[in-house]
């Protein structure tokens, strides 16, 4: 127990924890959206994220940037990041849609038992991971340095780098946007209706298939955005990166109450923070343990997560 370390590093731990938490939260949204509508743990979502990380790096490579090239000017960097976000989000969204169409829809047509979906998810996960492993020769791929690494601004002992600032603001923007989309638009109404009662919604004229496809695409978009920031944060990616991050993000979704959008956001950020504080306190080799301890302890006391399950249901 190293309290001195925790107190001394508190500002920095909080910032990096928030950034990591924002990435978890964006991935967690994908799990929670699909779960809220289909009651299905989309195990292949981690690979959707993984492919997004490569999408971003490939985009940068198309502009001649790799891990050895120097940082371009700030304006050009921002443009490149925006491009990478669009490319990664589109790529992840289409992979998510592909998974839904090939692995889940045929099973749903046949009214398969819930556990069968788990197996196709595992199958899709293996296939995507190994495909990327082969394509990248199972090597770690570095991402270029884009924004300067020095401090953007600091208040007291609290300093923030440009990458952190960008990650947090874009993540908040995405989450607010998604919340607005689900709660305020016509498409969102369709999603909530299907989440509440799929068959009744279908009878009321909601196109169930299209809503489900939309949910997968939305989750994929979020994962793609998370992927870009994950690349910039860690500076590299690998074909098996999705596994641990996906697991943590899924834990975050459960922590906040799976099926609940705001819950996933809160759960993600909370997990990022707790992990950082915990690893300062107990040593960084216990980082991964902390996430699961928190999760299990919380589920003992609040079996449906912090905010409870609700995507469609009115909050009781």
């Amino acid at each position: 127990m190293d309290f001195a370390e925790l107190v001394r590093g508190f500002p920095e731990l909080t910032t990096t924890g928030l950034v990591q938490g924002a990435i978890y939260a964006l991935i967690a949204l994908g799990y929670t959206l699909v779960y809220g509508v289909l009651r299905l743990i989309n195990f292949a979502h981690s690979e959707v994220f993984m492919i997004g990380t490569f999408g971003a790096i490939w985009t940068w490579a198309a502009f001649g940037l790799d891990s050895n090239s120097g940082a371009p000017s700030v304006g050009r960097s921002l443009l490149l990041i925006a491009l990478a976000i669009v490319a990664a989000a589109l790529l992840s969204g289409s992979v998510a849609l592909l998974i839904e169409v090939t692995a889940y829809r045929p099973l749903r047509r046949r009214n398969a038992p819930p556990l069968a979906f788990l197996i196709t998810a595992i199958g899709a996960s293996y296939a995507l991971m190994e495909l990327m492993g082969t394509l990248t020769q199972r090597r770690q791929v570095g991402s270029p340095a884009l924004l300067p690494a020095d401090t953007l601004f600091s208040i007291g002992g609290w300093s923030v780098t440009p990458v952190q600032m960008l990650t947090l603001s874009v993540a908040i923007l995405m989450m607010v946007g998604l919340d607005w989309f689900v709660n305020r638009t016509r498409f969102g109404k369709g999603i909530r209706a299907v989440a509440q009662d799929a068959n009744t919604a279908a009878l009321m004229g909601v196109n169930k298939s299209r809503v489900i496809a939309l949910v997968f695409v939305l989750g994929g978009l979020m994962a793609g955005v998370a992927a870009v920031f994950s690349d910039m944060k860690s500076g590299n990616t690998r074909y098996n990166i999705g596994f641990l991050l996906g697991l943590k993000a899924f834990s975050a979704a459960v922590l906040g109450g799976i099926g609940n959008l705001r819950g996933a956001a809160i759960g993600g950020v909370l997990l990022g923070l707790v992990e950082n504080y915990g690893s300062a306190l107990f040593g960084s080799q216990w980082r991964d343990l902390i996430a699961f301890v928190v999760l299990i302890v919380l589920l003992m006391f609040r079996p449906t997560g912090l905010l409870g399950e609700s995507l469609g249901r009115a909050r009781a």
């Binding site: 692995a103 595992i122 199958g123 899709a124 293996y126 296939a127 995507l128 190994e130 082969t134």
Partner: peptide
């Protein structure tokens, strides 16, 4: 092999 195995599972 695990790519093929994954597709077979589906």
């Amino acid at each position: 092999r695990y790519f093929i195995f994954g597709i077979l599972l589906i």
